[in-house]
Structures are given as structure tokens and as C-alpha cells.
Design a binder for these strands. Structure first.
Length: 580
DNA sequence: GCCGTTTTCGGCCCGACTGTTTTCAGTCG
């Protein structure tokens, strides 16, 4: 039997946490399973390797009991205590808790009292007015459950892609900033941390009074429905993409601590608040207080970290994956790559292959973003479906690139290719053509079905070609629909480091490939990166922001990312990397 | 269930909102 993958282990731990809550167990025991799941989710190392080396228990939050359970699950494919727990509770409860508004306690109550064992059965019970007969439930509960069921049905995975949501959120933020009385406002939540997917949008604003702000916010044309509204929080659902937006409005003196609180992550906060306790401080969204109730002045987030004697931690790093220890020791990198550092955008297509805009339009879009160069990397001949270029087409394209470079000032198009890495690991052009190009990205586009061994060897073989500069979207995943192809990432990155192959952090919202954990693995090995936009339209140059966010989440510094160099240095460095 | 530079027992982050309640439990983030 195939051993369960990491995602399965994480899911089982989360299920155990829920089942323990259903049983009414000690909530801290339940939380321990959740924390362990969080820890594994943020892990860059291979779970199987940790198990083999007996190092599972070295992970904070994983002790003897959970390590044993993970071990049992990984080695036997089953977990007896989990199965026993499931058997103790009514069937279907783990499905029921996926309905928003329905938590473990209510789910088990309804399952026991009404015999509902599925979301369908729950809906029927609501419609027949049976739910309101259960103590603690009323007519409103029924209506809310029906609304929750509809939401649950509309999308099995309610999390949206960062690249879909961020532009919507930033537009909304701009309008909130103009509402009456608003002093400061920011995006918060996993969106601010640049997680690859986000569940909803958190906006935090400061103003003298919340009421007028909420009135205006709820009346905005993009708002479809007001979910709830209290003293400091208001939740709405937008017409656009069915997105839920939570707006918090607080006095300006509480803005920094509120922004910090609603940025998360939960794991980061738990650690930080523990540290605060040791210093006799209490942190909440309403400020930092001493035990005697004195409130400390916290004008911005940096001040909050200073109170705990640690370096400022940027939002993208707040996941409790080592950033707290580093910040306490003063070892957090202070030169994480920023938007301002970027001089060029990597990976763009034009109408020469499957792009929608001309070379000149792409150049002008790059110019408008203040970029100094853009690498034009069309598909190669094997990618017939994507209008891949024959070698002759390429030469004609170079003439047009020269013309555009003469006419559009301040930005330079680099002559490149996204060449297919064929099934054999060979590249899809002759060396005679490849050596004339300034930028060669090699990517896998066909035959994803190879097994782990075959795919690993395919990539390593491609590294043998000295003209390959950059490995493009290394795992081929597409969120949420296509799994990454199987690959021994450690081996690929080891070899990339050894051979000077640069690795792409692809910024297309569905890809974000490398993902965060792999970025860290690459950097630990000294692999150099490019952040890319994989643009097929001029507007896609904005994908660079998503790639940048992923690189920062992986702790990438300015010097790790080659498109922070000038065009000349960029080209020279790509060549030098491979010559070394 | 995890954890420990006073502790191997006794803590564990913190609060808003809702619906159902007359003081709180459940859910969410």
C-alpha cells in the first residue's frame, strides 16, 4: 500500500482535534493536535526522512504521543486510535463540521438528537423545522444553517487564490480609506501574509467612530449581503467571487495592535503572547497591557516587537516556522527582497506564441511598472498547442525585439526562451540556437504522468545542458486542480546548487511554483532564484507581486534573487553560474 | 497532548459576535 502523504497525516491530526472537541475533551489536548498539524504543514523537510531519522519529536509541539501516531500512520497506513475515536461518534459529523457556523459541539448534538449523518440530512431537518426543536436552537439557527449549507455546496474548497483576491482587496481598501472619519486602513489576515490561498479578506481601519464607517461600507455597491455587524466588526459578502470581507474599525491608538492581531498567523500569536506573559505583559487586539492594567503606547507593529526585545518580523514570515527564535537572537534577515529591489521581470509570452499582447505592448507595460528589463521567453517548438516557435521563427522574433528595444526607452526586452524539457531530459532546440539566447528557462509541459524516479532523472538530465539557465515552474502544480508531479525535490535542488542552475519562483496565481517550503529548501542549499510573472497578457506582469510574496515567505533576500540585478549583470550572472 | 533557567504538575492567547439565553455556550479568527 502507498504510504499516506503529508496532507493526509495533517488531515488526520485535524480530524482528531475535532473529534476530541466533539467528545468534550480538554480543549488544550485538542489544540495540541491542531498545533502539530500546523507544524507539519509548515515543514520544508520530508516527513518520511524525519521519521526514519527519529527526529519527529524534535519539532516543537510534537511529543511522544503524536510522534507515535504519525509514525503508525506513515508505516501502516492506518491509525487505530483515530478509527476508534471515529467509531465513538455519530457517522457523518466530520462532514457536518465543514458547514460554516456549525462547529463540533452543535454538529454532534444534531447528529445525536436528530440522527442527521450528512449535510443533505441536515438540510432536510432544517427545512422540516426539526432543528428548532433541539434545545439551544431556534428559527434563526435553522436559517443560518441553511445559508451555511448553501455556502458549503457552492465550493468544496472555500479558499481562493492569492492572485485572484489581492487585487479585489486592494481596490476595496482604497475605497475604505476614503470613507468618512477613516484615519488609517490596511489589509490584514493571510492575504497580508501572502499565503498562496486565502479564505476571506480582512480589512482593519482606525476612525473616531465605527458606526458611520460601517454605514457607508455596508451600503457600497460591491456589497451583496451584510452577514453581521457589531461594535467593532462588520462582515459582508461581495458580489465579486462570493468573497467574505471582515472590516474592523478601532480607535487609532489601537490600530497597530489590531492590525497585528488580525494579520496572524494564529501560531505566531500563540508564541508571541506566551513571550509577553513571561514579561508580565498581555497582548490583545486592544493593545499591550501590564498586569496592573496599564496600557503601553504601541504606535506601530515595530514597537510591539521592540517591547518583546526582538527584531521586527515582516507579515510574510509570521508562521512560527523559526522566525521568532531568529528575531529574538537578532538573526532575522533584514534585507528580504522587496518590490523596489526588482529591476526586471522574468518569463513573458507575447503573440509570437500563446500570449495575448504584442512585444511592444509587453515592453510598455514593463516600462509603466518602472522595470528596466523583461525576459521574452516564448514556448519552444514541441509545445504545438501553445504556438511554440520553430528555430526560424525565433530569428525573425529577434529582429522585432531589436526594433522594440530601439523604440521603447528605459526598458530592454531580453532574448529568451521557455524551452521544453522533453521526456528524455533533452532540450527542445539545438545547442547552436540555445547558445545565442540571453535567457533560457527550461520547463516541463508534457508527460506529467512519469513516476518520481523518471521525473527526477528527466530534470537532472536537463541540467547537463550548459545552456539551460533557469528551471521553470519546477513541480508543475496547478491550484487547485492539478497535483505537482512526483519529484525528489531535495535531489533536484542539491544538483541545482552544485551545477549553478537557477530556479524559478513562478508568480502565476495557479502555480506559485516553487512554493514557500521549497523556496526555503532551495535557499538552504545556496540555490539562486528568479521571481517571475509567467505573463501571457500585459496585465499579468502584476503576477510578479505574488511571486515576490512567495519568495519573501521563503525568507529570500535581495542577493538570492537574480532579477534584482541590472539587465547586463543578470545576463552575465546567468552565464557565470553555469560556467562555475 | 505539550512543556519546563523557579515547575514533571499545572498551566496552556485572547476577544467579538450571535442566538439563545436571563448569564452563557458555541463558533470564529
Amino acid at each position: 500500500m502507498k504510504p499516506p502523504d503529508k496532507a493526509t497525516v495533517i488531515q488526520v491530526l485535524r480530524d482528531i482535534s475535532l473529534l476530541l472537541q466533539m467528545k468534550g475533551e480538554n480543549p488544550f489536548r485538542s489544540r495540541a493536535y491542531d498545533s502539530a498539524a500546523d507544524r507539519l504543514a509548515g515543514l520544508s523537510e520530508d516527513l518520511g526522512a524525519l521519521l526514519r531519522d527519529g527526529r519527529l519529536q524534535e519539532l516543537p509541539g510534537i511529543g511522544q504521543a503524536i510522534a507515535d501516531k504519525v509514525s503508525e500512520l506513515l508505516t501502516t497506513g492506518r491509525l487505530a486510535s483515530y478509527e476508534a475515536l471515529r467509531a465513538e461518534l455519530p457517522a457523518g459529523v466530520l462532514e457536518l463540521v465543514r458547514v460554516p457556523e456549525l462547529g463540533p459541539k452543535k454538529a454532534v448534538l444534531l447528529a445525536r438528537q436528530l440522527g442527521v449523518d450528512s449535510v443533505d440530512a441536515l438540510e432536510k431537518a432544517c427545512r422540516e423545522g426539526r432543528v428548532r426543536q433541539v434545545a439551544g436552537f431556534g428559527e434563526k439557527s435553522e436559517a443560518n444553517l441553511l445559508a451555511g449549507i448553501e455556502l458549503y455546496r457552492r465550493s468544496n474548497n472555500p479558499r481562493r487564490l492569492l492572485g485572484e483576491v489581492l487585487p479585489v482587496a486592494e481596490r476595496l481598501l482604497a475605497s475604505v480609506q476614503t470613507l468618512p472619519g477613516v484615519i488609517r486602513a490596511s489589509v490584514g489576515g493571510s492575504l497580508r501574509r501572502r499565503a498562496e490561498t486565502v479564505g476571506d479578506v480582512d480589512l482593519i481601519a482606525s476612525a473616531a467612530g465605527a458606526s458611520a464607517v460601517f454605514d457607508a461600507f455596508c451600503a457600497a455597491p460591491e456589497v451583496a449581503h451584510v452577514i453581521g455587524r457589531g461594535e467593532s466588526k462588520c462582515s459582508v459578502r461581495l458580489h465579486e467571487k462570493d468573497l467574505q470581507v471582515d472590516l474592523r474599525v478601532l480607535p487609532d491608538e489601537d490600530f497597530a495592535t489590531a492590525l497585528h492581531h488580525f494579520t496572524g498567523s494564529r501560531a505566531h500569536h500563540v508564541r508571541l503572547r506566551g513571550l509577553a506573559q513571561e514579561r508580565g505583559l498581555k497582548i490583545s487586539e486592544w493593545g499591550v497591557h501590564r498586569a496592573d492594567g496599564t496600557k503601553l503606547h504601541v504606535p506601530d507593529e515595530a514597537a510591539l516587537y521592540r517591547l518583546l526585545d526582538m527584531q521586527y518580523i515582516p507579515p510574510e514570515l509570521r508562521e512560527d516556522t523559526g522566525e521568532i527564535e531568529a528575531a529574538l537572537a537578532g538573526k532575522l534577515p533584514e534585507d528580504l527582497v522587496t518590490w523596489e529591489d526588482l529591476q526586471g521581470a522574468v518569463h513573458a509570452h507575447s503573440t509570437w506564441s500563446d500570449g495575448k499582447n504584442s512585444l511592444e505592448e509587453m515592453a510598455r507595460a514593463a516600462q509603466a511598472l518602472g522595470l528596466k528589463f523583461l525576459t521574452v521567453t516564448e514556448h519552444s517548438q514541441a509545445s504545438i498547442y501553445a504556438g511554440g516557435l520553430k528555430e526560424d521563427d525565433l530569428r525573425r522574433q529577434w529582429e522585432e525585439i531589436d526594433r522594440v528595444n530601439d523604440s521603447v526607452k528605459g526598458v530592454r526586452l531580453l532574448k529568451g526562451i521557455e524551452v521544453d524539457i522533453l521526456e528524455s531530459g533533452a532540450l527542445d532546440y539545438t545547442d547552436a540556437v540555445l547558445e545565442q539566447l540571453e535567457v533560457v528557462i527550461g520547463s516541463v509541459h508534457v508527460r506529467h504522468g512519469m513516476d518520481e524516479d523518471q521525473m527526477t532523472r528527466r530534470l537532472l538530465k536537463a541540467f547537463d545542458n550548459p545552456h539551460l539557465h533557469i528551471l521553470g515552474h519546477p513541480t508543475g502544480r496547478m491550484l487547485p486542480s492539478r497535483e505537482p508531479y512526483p519529484l525528489r525535490m531535495e535531489e533536484v535542488l542539491d544538483k541545482a546548487a552544485e551545477r549553478g542552475v537557477v530556479v524559478e519562483v513562478n508568480g502565476k496565481p495557479e502555480r506559485l511554483d516553487l512554493k514557500t517550503e521549497h523556496v526555503r529548501m532551495a535557499l538552504e542549499r545556496g540555490v539562486k532564484l528568479v521571481v517571475s510573472c509567467d505573463a501571457h497578457r500585459a496585465v499579468d506582469l502584476g503576477n510578479l507581486a505574488f511571486s515576490l510574496g512567495t519568495a519573501r515567505r521563503g525568507w529570500a533576500r535581495r542577493g538570492d534573487v537574480l532579477n534584482t540585478l541590472s539587465a547586463e549583470q543578470f545576463i552575465a550572472t546567468l552565464r557565470k553560474q553555469r560556467a562555475a
